[in-house]
Nucleic acid binder design. Structure first.
Length: 281
DNA sequence: CATCAATCCTGATCGC
DNA sequence: TGCGATCAGGATTGAT
């Protein structure tokens, strides 16, 4: 399930395949999921960026001057969300949903469960994408500061709060569980103290930083799992401490990891290391 | 406004 | 071994 580290890895991997290329055509059969992607035809990719779990191809007129190095101005953004199972491939297959035809070859978007979405918009016009419009700071940027403690002090259950993308961007189910374990916080803890918020801040940065370095997490053997465009796996799944490890001993204290459901998501935590602090009213 | 549940999807896995 | 039921979950929408 692509979260920030997987999307960032995807960005880095497909950048050399798309940068400077002209998109000739975008083929698909689901206009509702891939809105206005026909507008990309005839435009050149001048850069690839990422915001949270969203990938953006910067598009400019094909005849615009070819700047070297820095990203040149663009007048359209081709936004891609990988959903649960989306990913780019060098060859088409059974689950190819979108084909990007370029002047330097084709790139295929595979998405078995069809949760992925695309849209072409004017830069920054995210009215139709409320989560992107209200996106919190990048966890690995200087915009993410410990002053998020002020927000955390007012927050409801901490895991759903993280998953909302508002306090910080790019955290999904896997990295929420891993960050909360590292911070020693119960998934349903509310109204974090300053100390708790500080621990969570550092845990999110640590987990996300290491996961990006590892190329993200690749889980399971099935087709629907995250892979890089060349079929390579990320490595961070080997560093998971709690996700997918219900019943196994906590790496820190040996207590069996508990599996539960929080906010309709499979949730893993150590009852010993991550106790729920009762509100003292 | 905040919280919660339903919805979209289909391959993998589980239970009998 | 087969087959139906269940699980997985990010973002959005609708309900409370």
């Amino acid at each position: 399930m692509p979260e920030l580290p997987e999307v960032e890895t995807t960005r880095r991997k497909i950048e050399p395949l798309l940068l400077g290329r002209t998109i000739l055509e975008v083929q698909h059969d689901a206009p509702h999921k891939y809105r206005d992607t026909h507008l990309a035809a005839g435009r050149r990719v001048t850069g690839l960026s990422r915001r949270g779990k969203y990938l953006m191809l910067h598009l400019a007129a094909a005849e615009a001057a070819h700047d070297q190095g820095a990203d040149s101005p663009h007048d359209l953004e081709f936004i891609v969300h990988l959903g649960m199972t989306g990913g780019f491939r060098l060859e088409g297959g059974k689950h190819t949903r979108v084909t990007l035809r370029t002047d330097a070859g084709d790139l295929y978007f595979d998405d078995p469960r069809r949760f992925g979405k695309m849209a072409v918009v004017r830069p920054g016009e995210y009215a139709g994408m409320p989560t992107l419009a209200a996106m919190g700071p990048e966890p690995l940027s200087d915009d993410f500061r410990e002053d998020f403690a002020a927000l955390a002090a007012q927050a409801g259950a901490v895991k759903p709060w993280l998953l909302s993308q508002k306090p910080v961007s790019g955290v999904g189910n896997i990295y929420a569980d891993e960050s909360l374990w590292l911070a020693g916080l119960h998934p349903t803890q509310t109204r974090l103290t300053r100390d708790e918020a500080g621990r969570l801040y550092h845990a999110v940065r640590d987990v996300m930083g290491r996961a990006v370095e590892a190329g993200g997490s690749s889980l399971g053997k099935g087709e629907g799992n995250y892979r890089q465009h060349d079929g390579l796996s990320g490595l961070f799944q080997h560093a998971h401490n709690v996700y997918g490890k219900g019943g196994e001993p906590c790496p820190r204290c040996g207590t069996p990891i508990e599996k539960s459901v929080v906010a309709q998501r499979g949730t893993h935590h150590c009852p010993q290391c991550q106790p729920l602090r009762r509100e003292t009213v």
